[in-house]
Design a protein around this nucleic acid. Structure first.
Length: 505
RNA sequence: GGCCCGUUCGUCUAGGGGUUAGGACAGCAGAUUUUCAUUCUGUAAACAGGGGUUCGAUUCCCCUACGGGCUACCA
C-alpha cells in the first residue's frame, strides 16, 4: 500500500460548516492512524464565489478543533503552493495533454448559447439537456469544426473551454470504501468542462491533477461528490495515473424534517452549525459558533466523531488517541445522520465534568472579571467544586452569583411561603450565633453543628434550612446551604444573615 | 424527470440467517437529596412494505414506497 496521504480541500466560499469539520476529522484520524499525512488544500478556482476571510476562518476553525494539517495552506510543505489559484499555470498543460490524447476537446459555445439550448429543450419537454457524447456533434467545437477554423479561433483568442470527451457505451466502476462497488454508465455522464474560459480549471481537473501531484492515496469527501466520481476515475485513466481510493461520506441532516443541515436550521432551532462565529463580510450578519457558545472543542469533535461512525462497542467518550486507534473507514455508516443538539450538549457536560477544578477555575475567572468580580483562583476553584455538577457550560457556573455577592432582593414567592415575620428571625439568629462560635468553618463542621442545633432546639430540617438558604442566596434552589456558607466564609454569612433579618423582619 | 446512494426505537447507533434485537441522548416513573441540579433504579420505544431464497429472515436477493445527493464555464 502506498503511503497514506489524505487531504481536506474546502472552497473559501464562506465559513466551514460542521459537516466539513467532520470530513476533515475523518481524514485527520485516518492519516494519524496510518502514520500518514493530512493536508489542507484550498480550492479557490471560482473567483466569483471567493469570500474574504473564509480561508482564514477555515484554518482557524481546524486549529480550534485540534485537527491541524501537517501540510498545506498556512503550513507549507513539499507540494506548495496549496492554493489552487496559485497553481493556476499548472493546469492548462494537463488539459492540453488530454486533448492531444483524444480525451478532450476545445468547445467554443458561449454560456449564452448553452442557456438558449437548455431553454429550448425545456420548451420541447426535454428538461435535461446535456453537452454529451451525442449532442456535442451538433455544437461548435474542435470535433465538429474544420481544423483550420479551430486554429484560427484559437489564434484569434476566441474564448473557449476544454471539455472532457466522455466515451460512449462504457461502464465505469470503482469500489467505494464505504459503499462497495458503484457502477455508472458513461452514457449518462456529460462532457464536463475541465478548463474554463477565464483560464482557470474547474474543480474536476484541478482536483484530480492536485490529488495526483500531491500524491494523495485516499480521497475521503462528502457524498455530494459521488456523482462526479466516475468522471474523476476516467480522468485518472486518461492521464494513466493510479487513482486514489475513494470514500464518500454520508451527509449530516437537519434535526427535524428532511434535507441536509443548513445555516438556516441553526438559526431556526437555536444551535450553531459552524465551529466559530462568523460575520458575513457583505451583510454583516452573524452566525453563531460552537466556540463562542462555550463548547469544548473536544466535546464538539467527539460528537462529530459519533455522527456517522460507531466503534462497534458502546464507548462514547474518546480521547484523541482513542479516536485514532479505533477509527476505521469501514465502520462509517452508509446513511445520513440527523444532527442532535441535545446530545451535543450532553457531550459538553461530560467533558466539563472530566475537566480538573483548577482548569475550570481558570476558564471561569475571565468570565467573572467581565462581571467586575475579582476573586482569587483558590476561591474560584471552590466555586467550581460547588457549581460544576449543575453546569453544561463553564458559563453556567455563573448562575451562582450569590457566591460572590449577597442578595439584595429575595424571591418574593419563597419569602411568602417560608418566612414568618417575627418568628423566623429568631430561629435564624440563634443558628447564626451557633455558627459564629465555630472555629472550623468547613462544610462538614457546619453540617455537623447544624444537626446538633436541630436536636438542641428540637426542630426539623425544613424549619431552618430553607430560611438559611433564603438569606444566603435569595432563592430556594441551588447547592446545599452549608456548602455555600463554607465557601463564602463566616464573616460574609454573618453579614448576610444580619441583612436578611433586617430586611425581612 | 433522469442517474446514483440510502432505510434498525423520536434521534445517534450496535447486531446479524435461529437474539428477551443491545447501548446512548431525549421522554416518562420512582428512589436519594431541606430545594434545584446531580446520582441511582425502573419504564416505554425500532428492524419501511411486498415478494422470493431458506427448515427458519430484521439479517441474503428482487420490487415498491419513502428519504437524500447530483443533474452549471459552483465547489
Amino acid at each position: 500500500m502506498r503511503k497514506v496521504r489524505v487531504r481536506f480541500a474546502p472552497s473559501p466560499t464562506g465559513p466551514l460548516h460542521m459537516g466539513g469539520v467532520r470530513t476533515a476529522l475523518y481524514n485527520y484520524l485516518f492519516a494519524k492512524k496510518h502514520g500518514g499525512d493530512f493536508l489542507l488544500r484550498i480550492e479557490d478556482t471560482d473567483q466569483g464565489r471567493f469570500v474574504p476571510g473564509a480561508e482564514q476562518y477555515i484554518i482557524e476553525a481546524l486549529k480550534w478543533c485540534g485537527i491541524e494539517p501537517n501540510e498545506g495552506v498556512g503550513y507549507g510543505g513539499d507540494c506548495a503552493p496549496y492554493r489552487q489559484s496559485e497553481r493556476k499555470p499548472m493546469y492548462k498543460p494537463y488539459a492540453e495533454k488530454l486533448i492531444a490524447a483524444g480525451w478532450a476537446y476545445y468547445a467554443f459555445d458561449t454560456s449564452e448559447d448553452l442557456d438558449n439550448i437548455r431553454k429550448q429543450a425545456e420548451l420541447a419537454k426535454m428538461p435535461n439537456w446535456q453537452y454529451n457524447s451525442i449532442s456535442r456533434m451538433t455544437m461548435k467545437n474542435s470535433l465538429t469544426l474544420p481544423v483550420d477554423e479551430v486554429e484560427k479561433r484559437l489564434a484569434a483568442g476566441d474564448p473557449y473551454v476544454i471539455r472532457f470527451k466522455m466515451p460512449r457505451n462504457e461502464e465505469v466502476r470503482f469500489q467505494d470504501l464505504i459503499r462497495g462497488w458503484v457502477v455508472f454508465s458513461t452514457n449518462e455522464l456529460d462532457d464536463k468542462v475541465l478548463f474554463k474560459s477565464d483560464g482557470m480549471p474547474t474543480y474536476h481537473l484541478a482536483n484530480v491533477v492536485d490529488d495526483m501531484t500531491m500524491n494523495i492515496s485516499h480521497v475521503i469527501r462528502g457524498e455530494e461528490w459521488l456523482p462526479s466520481a466516475p468522471l474523476h476515475v476516467l480522468l485518472y485513466k486518461a492521464f494513466e495515473w493510479e487513482a486514489p481510493l475513494f470514500a464518500h461520506l454520508p451527509l449530516i441532516l437537519k434535526p427535524d424534517g428532511n434535507g441536509k443541515l443548513s445555516k438556516r436550521d441553526g438559526d431556526r432551532l437555536g444551535f450553531p452549525v459552524f465551529p466559530l462565529e462568523w460575520k458575513d463580510p457583505e451583510t454583516g450578519a452573524i452566525s453563531s459558533g460552537y466556540r463562542e457558545k462555550g463548547y469544548f472543542p473536544k466535546a464538539f469533535i467527539n460528537m462529530l466523531l459519533l455522527l456517522g461512525w460507531a466503534p462497534g462497542n458502546n464507548q462514547e467518550i474518546f480521547t484523541e488517541q482513542e479516536m485514532i486507534d479505533a477509527f476505521t473507514i469501514e465502520r462509517i455508516g452508509k446513511s445520513g445522520s440527523k444532527f442532535d443538539p441535545d446530545k451535543t450538549r450532553w457531550f459538553n457536560q461530560q467533558y466539563l465534568r472530566a475537566t480538573p477544578h483548577h482548569e475550570l477555575a481558570q476558564m471561569l475567572q475571565p468570565l467573572l472579571k467581565e462581571k467586575g468580580i475579582d476573586v482569587s483562583l483558590e476561591y474560584t476553584e471552590n466555586v467550581v467544586g460547588l457549581m460544576m455538577e449543575r453546569a453544561v457550560f463553564v458559563e453556567d457556573m455563573l448562575e451562582g452569583m450569590y457566591l460572590f455577592q449577597g442578595p439584595t432582593e429575595f424571591d418574593a414567592e419563597a419569602v411568602s411561603k417560608k418566612w414568618k415575620v417575627g418568628e423566623s428571625a429568631v430561629i435564624i439568629q440563634k443558628w447564626a450565633d451557633a455558627m459564629n462560635a465555630l472555629e472550623d468553618f468547613s462544610f462538614e463542621s457546619i453540617d455537623h453543628r447544624f444537626k446538633e442545633f436541630l436536636q438542641e432546639e428540637n426542630l426539623g430540617m425544613g424549619a431552618v434550612m430553607p430560611l438559611f438558604r433564603l438569606l444566603l442566596t435569595g432563592t430556594l434552589t441551588g447547592p446545599a446551604a452549608a456548602q455555600v456558607a463554607s465557601v463564602i466564609g463566616k464573616e460574609e454569612v454573618m453579614k448576610r444573615v444580619a441583612f436578611g433579618i433586617e430586611k425581612l423582619g
